[in-house]
Simulated assay, not measured.
Amino acid sequence: MKITHRLTIAVVSALALAGLATPAQAAPAAPTVQCEFTPTPENPAARPVRPPSPTASAKGTAHAVLQTNYGLVAIELDKSNAPCAVHNFRHLVRSWFYQHTQCFRLTASQRLGVLQCGDIYEVEKGGPGYRFPDEVTGKETYPRGTVAMGNQGPGTNGSQFFLVHSHANIDPKYSVLGRVVWGMDTLDRIVAAGIADGADDGAPAHPVRIHFAVTT
């Protein structure tokens, strides 16, 4: 096991000790929802992965840590807000789908300031081979630190997600996974490194890579 992987696991453990993640304990069965994961043979899986089980927990929180070449980002995932999206995200993390991937899009405009990750090949190319519906109320907002699903239209969620490093003045069409609870300085360093060709929307000037991702 690589040292970097051990470090990421150590951070998850530290979050648990700090109370940001709660170890599993015996408790009454949590409410669940049924999710619909539809295969997309026209866009096959970019890496070997099966759709998650259709049953997702709809209560409580979970945590994930992304270890990037710029530093660590810890995320608190809200099962009650987007149970199917959180269930899918944790499934992909546990399936090593995000291991050694690249975040291909960075934006820094007056409208949108996000880092977009989760695609295997390039922006919006290379998903898990299935899609699932949005989980939105129409009242969503996306302040700094928000983590949400990216998509290419209604009901096209897969592996793509984005982290809001400043603001996202966008329509409430994206399922909110949760929020960054540690590591906003990592995102700030990525933003400070700039966007290719001085643009306000494009590839990061220096590649942003996710080495490992783990989840509780």
Rank of each mutant, 00 (worst) to 15 (best):
N151F: 02
G155D: 10
A199Q: 12
K125I: 13
G145P: 12
E140Y: 00
D134P: 12
H63I: 09
V176E: 01
P143V: 02
D197T: 04
V73K: 01
T215C: 15
L92F: 03
S53K: 10
V114A: 03
L7Q: 13
A56G: 05
Y98K: 02
K125C: 07
F161W: 09
T55A: 13
R6G: 14
L163E: 06
P54D: 07
D188G: 05
T215Q: 14
Q34N: 15
G202E: 10
A18G: 15
V164P: 12
A21P: 09
V136F: 03
P31H: 07
P31F: 06
E122L: 11
V176R: 01
A148N: 00
N43L: 14
I190R: 01
A56Q: 04
T61P: 09
P128H: 00
F162E: 00
T146V: 02
V208K: 04
D119H: 01
G155M: 04
P41Q: 07
V181N: 09
D185Y: 04
G198V: 03
A205C: 06
G60N: 13
R94T: 02
V164D: 08
A203T: 03
L7N: 09
H206P: 02
H63R: 11
Q152M: 11
P28G: 04
E140V: 00
T137G: 15
K173S: 14
P143Q: 06
D185I: 05
A196M: 13
H91W: 08
